[in-house]
Simulated scan of single mutants.
Amino acid sequence: MSLTEKPEETPERLAFYDKIDKEAFTPLWAVMSSIITPEPKSACQPHIWRFENARAHLLEAGGLITAKEAERRVLILENPGLRGTSKITTSLYAGLQLVMPGEVAPAHRHSQSALRFVLDGSGAHTAVNGERTEMQYGDFVITPPWAWHDHGNTTDEPMIWLDGLDIPIVTHFDASFAEGMDADEQPITRQTGDSLARFGANMLPVDYRQEKLASPIFNYSYARSREALEKMKAQQEWDPCHGLKMRYVNPVDGGYAMPTIAPFLQLLPKGFKTAAYRSTDATVHVPVEGRGRTSIAGETFEWGPRDIFVVPSWHHVSHEADEEAVLFSYSDRVAQEKLGLFRQDRGNN
């Protein structure tokens, strides 16, 4: 009998199952094929969300409910195969957040790690543990676990960004805590740019000791990251499966920037088509520049800047760029690597 072959359900066996069910027992042999699978099996589906549609819905929501009433005015990107669960993959959450001119999304903190990836507007701010940073298009901003954070918009234009959180992971471990602050905005105790100066110049304070797992830098500016990609592309060293793909890191230890979420930035030159690739980390992608298409298990999705699409675990994926393109992405790869679960298939590359 193979690992996934279910034993025959005879009348005698069904009667036995019914009897032990009353005492909260279940026979492993009756369910093994559904809980131990030869390859990843998930209800998560490939899907794409068009930013222009999402922006229109968000602006409509902006006229229906305030940021303070909602606490966070967000539209969840819910995977079609996981409806009702607030998940974009089985382990990750995604949502699009709107802060209108003059608004404040009030201060709170929670066990979950969060990232912000700025998609529309310029000049709004977020504050994390006493330091405020201005947000620009393409910036990758971190809110570490249990860090006070609030958002404000003093510009005259709406501000929209993608929120990525590890809510399903924290929920799985029954480890969720959250609390609000008495004030809408936290006290600012550090100069803007302080964390970047302390930790982002290939130096550390002399007696610094790492106490938390997230990066002490919480705004990775797109301008700086894009400049790095531009320098590296001149070397013409293209990975067949990824083009030029980099991961955001914690400068303290060189590990991923976040403890449970792995963020990446990737450049594809015009006309480049990546080789088929698959991995166990279901991944959320956001084109920042350029246009192209992505094939996911044989299904093709055309994309442009600020669209959002998801690749489920262990689905073959290939990207093709019609013009030079940059993709931001995030997955749970860092958590899988720490648990010894991560696996990838690069074909013959």
Score class of each variant (00 low, 15 high):
20 I>K: 14
216 P>H: 01
190 R>V: 11
326 V>P: 03
181 M>W: 08
332 D>I: 00
116 R>Y: 01
14 L>R: 05
113 S>E: 12
266 Q>G: 07
209 R>Q: 07
186 Q>S: 08
105 A>I: 05
162 L>N: 00
82 L>N: 01
241 C>M: 11
149 H>V: 02
77 L>P: 01
26 T>F: 07
288 V>M: 13
106 P>L: 00
174 D>W: 08
308 I>G: 06
138 G>P: 06
138 G>A: 14
30 A>G: 08
105 A>D: 09
78 E>D: 08
107 A>R: 13
57 H>G: 05
57 H>M: 07
186 Q>T: 06
17 Y>L: 13
82 L>I: 01
49 W>L: 10
94 A>D: 08
250 N>Q: 03
338 K>E: 14
112 Q>M: 10
314 W>H: 06
12 E>N: 11
248 Y>K: 01
234 A>L: 07
5 E>R: 14
277 Y>H: 02
293 R>E: 05
255 G>L: 06
205 P>A: 07
158 P>S: 00
22 K>D: 12
26 T>K: 04
16 F>K: 05
180 G>Y: 02
326 V>F: 02
140 F>Y: 12
317 V>G: 00
208 Y>M: 15
156 D>A: 05
26 T>H: 15
196 L>S: 02
166 D>T: 01
214 A>K: 07
88 I>Q: 04
77 L>H: 01
302 E>D: 15
27 P>H: 02
313 S>M: 08
196 L>K: 06
240 P>F: 10
272 F>V: 06
164 G>V: 14
189 T>D: 10
317 V>C: 00
221 S>N: 04
197 A>K: 10
201 A>H: 08
111 S>W: 00
144 P>A: 03
338 K>V: 03
97 Q>P: 13
82 L>V: 01
169 I>K: 04
20 I>A: 10
308 I>E: 09
241 C>S: 12
233 K>V: 15
239 D>Y: 13
275 A>Q: 09
257 A>S: 13
261 I>R: 00
175 A>V: 01
30 A>F: 09
233 K>F: 04
85 T>M: 00
165 L>K: 04
109 R>Q: 14
56 A>Y: 10
158 P>V: 00
331 S>W: 00
243 G>D: 13
333 R>F: 02
349 N>K: 13
267 L>Q: 05
204 L>R: 09
306 R>Y: 11
10 T>L: 04
349 N>L: 13
187 P>C: 12
182 D>K: 04
303 W>C: 03
327 L>G: 11
71 E>K: 08
231 K>D: 09
256 Y>S: 05
297 A>P: 05
92 L>Y: 10
48 I>W: 06
246 M>Q: 09
61 A>Q: 07
116 R>D: 02
339 L>V: 08
208 Y>Q: 15
266 Q>S: 11
154 T>W: 15
49 W>H: 10
136 Q>T: 11
132 R>K: 14
178 A>S: 13
301 F>G: 12
33 S>D: 04
118 V>E: 11
